Computed example of a mutant assay.
Amino acid sequence: MIFDVNETLSDMAPMGQRFEDVGAPAHLARTWFAGLLRDGFALTAVGVNEAFATIAVDALSVVLDGQPLERSVEDAVQHIMEGFAGLPVHADVPEGIGSLQHLGIRLVTLSNGSASVAEALLDRAGIRDHFEMLLSVEDAGRWKPAADAYAYALERCDVDPADAMLVAVHPWDIDGAARAGLATAWINRTGGPYPGYFRTPDLQVGSLTELADELAR
């Protein structure tokens, strides 16, 4: 089972406070994150594999420009990035991951961010030892949802696509994995609709604990 990390495992709700700390509106946190994903996808589409952190920092400088900041842009960027590096996991993650491991399922992560960020996140949550490997697209050469990213994870795990499942909150990630031949599970914590233009996930659940319960059946 291959897990996305950012927003799927990590809870990004505290980022709004980080933006408010520096004098920017909290809603810019979502604008910033959506923008950095968009730009990472755009670079991947033209064959460029830029590091997540590099895009994140530059994208922050862009969205903070013109805001009534209470400190320099450089200090504001540093404060926000420190918050990103210290995010917690969602409340359902520790129990859900423990239950999935108890089922005998191999667990790995595949992030568009760095493996070190995933490692720190899981260490803080006390669940790092539940995961066999922490993988990053930095080593795959392409960001998800490019097929090469999923192929890299499958190769590292030595499994066929039909024997793997991608777990994510992002419909674009679900769609990419499905097109690469993986089974998919969409974690829909908000109860929102799934976009009809993406391939439908094999499973739709509200949490990782629900996912474990569904698979246990």
Rank of each mutant, 00 (worst) to 15 (best):
D163T: 03
D160S: 13
R156E: 01
D139S: 12
D148F: 12
V137Y: 07
V167L: 11
F131N: 04
K144N: 04
Y152W: 03
M165Q: 05
Y150C: 04
A153S: 08
H130D: 10
D160W: 04
H170G: 13
H170I: 11
D163H: 11
L135Y: 09
A140W: 12
L154S: 01
A149H: 04
P161I: 00
L134C: 03
F131D: 01
M165Y: 05
L166G: 05
L154M: 13
D148R: 15
A168F: 12
A146G: 14
M133F: 07
M165C: 11
M165H: 05
H170R: 15
A153I: 03
R156L: 01
Y150M: 03
A149N: 04
A147W: 02
A153M: 02
E155A: 06
D163V: 00
P161C: 02
A153R: 08
R142N: 13
D163Q: 13
D163P: 03
E155P: 02
P161N: 03
R142Q: 15
A164E: 05
R142I: 10
V137H: 08
A164S: 07
A149W: 04
Y152R: 00
A162W: 01
V159R: 14
A164I: 06
E138Y: 06
Y152G: 00
D163A: 10
R142S: 14
F131S: 03
A140Y: 11
P161V: 01
F131P: 06
L166T: 08
A151C: 04
P171L: 15
H170T: 12
W143G: 08
V159K: 10
A162F: 01
D139C: 08
P145T: 14
Y150V: 05
R156D: 01
E132F: 10
A146S: 15
A153F: 06
F131E: 01
M165S: 04
H130W: 05
A168N: 11
E132V: 05
P171D: 15
V159N: 03
E132G: 02
A162R: 07
H170V: 11
D160E: 12
A168G: 13
D160C: 06
A162M: 00
H130T: 03
D139K: 13
G141E: 06
K144L: 07
D158P: 01
P145S: 08
E155F: 00
A151I: 07
A162D: 04
D158C: 05
L135N: 09
P161M: 00
E155Q: 08
A149E: 00
S136H: 08
Y150W: 02
G141M: 07
E138N: 13
S136M: 07
M165V: 04
D148Y: 12
P145M: 12
A162V: 00
V137G: 14
V137K: 09
L135V: 08
D158W: 01
A162K: 05
L166M: 15
A151D: 09
P171H: 15
L135P: 06
P145G: 07
F131V: 03
D163S: 10
P145V: 14
G141D: 05
R156Y: 00
P161A: 02
V169W: 06
H170A: 15
A147Q: 13
V137P: 12
D148V: 14
A151K: 07
L154E: 00
Y152S: 01
F131R: 06
P171N: 15
W143N: 14
R142K: 15
